[in-house]
Structure formats: C-alpha cells, structure tokens
Simulated scan of single mutants.
Amino acid sequence: MSRIDAQFAKLKASGRKAFVSYTMAGDPDYDTSLEILRGLPGAGVDIIELGLPFTDPMADGPTIQLAGQRALEAGMTLRRTLDLARTFREQDDATPIVLMGYYNPIYSYGVERFLTDAKDAGIDGLIVVDLPPEEDDELCIPAQAAGISFIRLATPTTDDARLPRVMQNTSGFVYYVSITGITGAAEAEAGDVAPEVARIKAAGDLPVVVGFGIRTPERARAIASVADGAVVGSAIVSRIAEGASVAEVLSFVRDLAGGAHSA
C-alpha cells in the first residue's frame, strides 16, 4: 500500500477528511521552504503537494507564477526539488508527497532518470497538468510501473464522455478543479462541487479531493464536507509572498486544516 493509499485509509477509519496543502519548492528560498515543509504535518497537513518551479506555468494564476519565479531566482531546479523531498524524508517517512508541475522539466531531466530519482527521494505521486490521458505512455504508465501514483485532474468541463478516459490509469486520488480558469481565481462553492464529486466517484473508486478557490477554514470545511478532502495552495503561497514568518505560515495552515478536519 502506498503512502497515499495508507493515508486515505487512516482518514476514512477515523471519519476525517483530508487536508492537502500546496507550496512551491524553494519559495522564497531553499532553507525557508524546507522549514515550512517540515512543519506542515504538525500543522495538520495530511498530504503535501510540492510545486515544481517552471518558467511557463500555464494553469497557475499570478500568486503561484510569482512563487515559481522567486524559487527559480533563488536557484531552485528539479534536482534541488528532489533534494528537498529527500531531506524532508529524513524526519518524516509517513506523510505523502505529491510533486505538482509541468512536463518540460521532467522531459529535460529524462523520464527514466527522473522516476528513479523521484522514487529514491520519497515522492509518492505526480500531478502533471499538461499531459492529457492521450499521452499516458510518456510518463503516467512508466510512473505507475515505478510505484509512483499518477493523479489526474478533472474539471467542470470534463463531461461524461471524457470522464472514463480521465479515470483510466489514474491512481492515488482524483483532483477535482472546482472552477474554470487559473489558480487563485474565483471561490469554490460546495453546492456546485457536490454533484460533480458524486459524478466522479460513481465513475471509479478513488478518493476525490477538491482544489482551487479555497482560501479560508470555513471554505475548506464546506468543500471537504462534500468531498474526500480539500486542497489549499494560493492562499498559503500568498502568506509566504507577504513575508510571513514560518510560524505564521504554519499557524494559517493549522487553521485551514482544522476547517477541513471538522467537516
């Protein structure tokens, strides 16, 4: 059983929903990013999404775009991102880490080498937003053969004809994007999300977590109440961009996690 599967089984047994956090690797610098990363489990994070900095993040809004720029300017690379995860694993061998980003850096690094190094670093899953199911041979199938989950995005525009293709070869969980558009845009509405989550769950047996448009503990609770978990990214990254201390960032994360866990 993977760390992701084990975490969801543990949460289900305790009647709790998952809280998933997103931070950009190397934002605002390597050492601060590592300190935040190490503090996330203690702040209530069940699954860590770790952003892979990239120059052209097409699905991300200004907040995460700027985080990627800060990380790149601070010298962050794919190799250093894996080093960050590997160092985190020295103190935490249980919390799942999902690497989220784009295919270009992975392709440039070399898929086979990347999967070997990612597995060695303790990466449990991948979300690669610009690889559709038609390109599963590129990374999805090799990743799963290497023991790394490939997590697919479903969106409000994923219709019933498309959904089975999206679910095919997906593992770990399904990430439902609650709004159309980029990260950090509109707010997610539980009333809109609930029927979509039910539709996805009817198409497969994977947990469904919901992200985009969640900024407050109250919103995290509302969304988690209709899904298997909630993801918060831009709101956390905004605190880092504002220069909040590590303690302040983790306090904010703790409040968000408390919201999701109270659903």
Rank of each mutant, 00 (worst) to 15 (best):
V226N: 03
Y107R: 12
I64P: 00
T158P: 02
L66Y: 12
P28C: 09
T158G: 04
G125E: 07
L40Y: 04
V232D: 01
A230E: 05
I223M: 05
L250M: 13
Q7K: 15
F19N: 04
A186M: 08
G42H: 06
P62F: 03
T216Q: 06
D27M: 06
V208A: 01
G211I: 03
V177R: 00
F252M: 05
R86L: 09
D46R: 03
Q69V: 14
R152Q: 09
S108K: 09
M167F: 06
R70K: 13
T81G: 11
S33V: 12
Y103W: 11
P195Q: 12
H261R: 13
R38V: 11
G51N: 08
P62T: 06
S245N: 14
F54Q: 02
V209Q: 00
C140A: 14
L139S: 03
E49K: 07
I141N: 12
L115S: 10
I236H: 06
E242K: 15
R70A: 10
A224M: 04
R80C: 11
G110E: 10
I36C: 09
V246R: 08
G243Q: 10
S234D: 04
L82Y: 10
A43H: 12
I127D: 00
A161C: 04
P164D: 07
D93E: 15
G61K: 05
V128F: 05
R3V: 01
P96C: 10
T23E: 10
T158Q: 02
E187M: 08
C140R: 08
F252C: 05
L66P: 00
R70D: 13
Y30L: 10
Y107K: 13
L37E: 05
F88H: 02
A94V: 12
A143H: 02
I47E: 00
A143S: 15
Y176E: 00
C140F: 03
V98E: 01
T32S: 14
S178F: 04
A190I: 11
G39N: 10
F54S: 02
A194S: 15
V98T: 08
I97M: 08
G191D: 14
D160H: 12
A59M: 09
V177T: 02
A146V: 12
G211D: 04
N104K: 07
A43Y: 08
R199P: 02
A43I: 08
I127R: 01
V249E: 07
I127T: 02
T55Q: 13
E187W: 02
V174C: 06
E112C: 08
G44S: 08
V111K: 06
V174R: 00
V111I: 15
